[in-house]
Design a protein around this nucleic acid. Structure first.
Lengths: 228, 228
DNA sequence: TCTGATTCGAGAGCACCGCTCTCGTTGCCC
DNA sequence: GGGCAACGAGAGCGGTGCTCTCGAATCAGA
């Protein structure tokens, strides 16, 4: 994209990202609850009301951070699962990258997948970037299915068939049978649960440190998803 | 337990539960973030400072609610998985009960398994009641293993062996081989992930409503845990 | 039964929060 | 250059968690 035309636009764009950067910093070390508009403004040497010229509310700022976080995580997964090695290896790398990202950015991860803070949430802007994360895993499963010659005999009821098709279309995986999509979702669900339990401290005193268990879980995911 | 001796003790116990009840009510319809000590006090016709005679801080109140919630959920699962029917049926009932409880008390469930609010959390009082939940599922897996005559040939590395033993001891399941414990944990992890993804709205527009997918996931859990 | 200690509720107050509104100033476009 | 929109500063509103003080109620021991 070209440089912004007017000085005002340039300044606005710059300040917008400065605000997000400072907010991300506070989010990283105090959590979503500790993120305060006033503190962000203070740190940036401005008064809190000025900040409302850039984000109409605290929730909007959080939403912007969520979108950025989804994209950062999605990019990390894309990179980790890029071509190279078998589909199984790509899944292993992606799963490991997911876990590593979650550990490196626990509060951002919690923002994405933790409790839906107020009454509920999910503004429309977040759903597309949010899909990148499972998308990265489903794409590996698709490639594995293609590589294996492709055969499936799962019996599925109509509801599941329709939902699988919806998922496939949303992620541009229309060339894959529903059963493969659903098995990949099974594996993604398992992966997600493992990371979530570890991150929320439910493994404390038992599976902690969870490296060995995580490796085991990943192998199970491969079997679940039918990734050779 | 006998009635409390002095009037003061009686009043204290009563007010303590009244506070928790009102707090639970607010938690239920405004979420953990919306729970305000001042509002609880207001509703109870007292002044906010008086409430500090009963709970030294907002976090302590939340911790008390967490313990109660773990016990409520644990009790629900115990009831659902009580003897009657095959282990597979008991697992199905328990898993369904978990999902139903989560849907009925989303904010309390989020309090238990959502983002670890401040920097981190898990006061010691919560770990024992917290273990009741996976405990209910692991016990079903144990019974299934006993009923099936019991044989296993999983190869496990030493780290996992030790951690499995720790889990088994914490839950009084010492008569079960490590491999069975771990496979039950695999299934529990998968179950947890399914509920978590659904509850945080990640299934919106795709797997929602997730009844069919959940039923499918439960069957996969049975295979994972080796429950016939 | 009286007394001293303890517990309790009320109230005022501190520092913080999100958010709104007003008011000068600054930069932009015609 | 003039009109207009964007901007930052400041004051202020109602809310929060939490602390401290003070008088009243309650309890336990002599």
């Amino acid at each position: 994209m070209p440089a912004h035309r007017t000085a005002r636009e340039r300044a606005r764009a710059e300040l917008t990202t400065e605000i997000k950067d400072e907010a991300r910093r506070q989010l990283a070390d105090k959590g979503a609850n500790g993120l305060s508009l006033r503190a962000v403004a203070r740190e940036l040497g401005m008064v809190s009301s000025a900040l409302y010229r850039y984000f109409p509310s605290r929730d909007e700022l959080l939403t912007a951070l969520i979108v950025d976080a989804y994209n950062a995580l999605g990019g990390t997964l894309d990179k980790a699962s890029a071509a190279g090695g078998s589909p199984a290896d790509r899944w292993r790398r992606a799963a490991t990258a997911l876990r590593a990202w979650a550990h490196a950015h626990p509060h951002e991860y919690a923002l994405l997948y933790g409790t839906p803070v107020p009454g509920y949430r999910a503004p429309q802007d977040t759903v597309a970037p949010g899909g990148r994360v499972p998308g990265a895993f489903l794409r590996i499963a698709r490639d594995a299915w293609h590589a294996s010659g492709g055969a499936t005999d799962d019996r599925l009821d109509d509801t599941l068939r329709g939902q699988a098709r919806t998922i496939a279309e949303a992620l541009d995986l229309t060339d894959v049978p529903d059963a493969v999509v659903l098995r990949a979702v099974d594996a993604w669900t398992h992966l997600f649960g493992t990371v979530a339990l570890e991150l929320t401290g439910q493994f404390a005193n038992t599976l902690d440190p969870a490296d060995a268990y995580f490796a085991r879980a990943v192998e199970l995911q491969l079997r679940t998803a039918g990734i050779g």
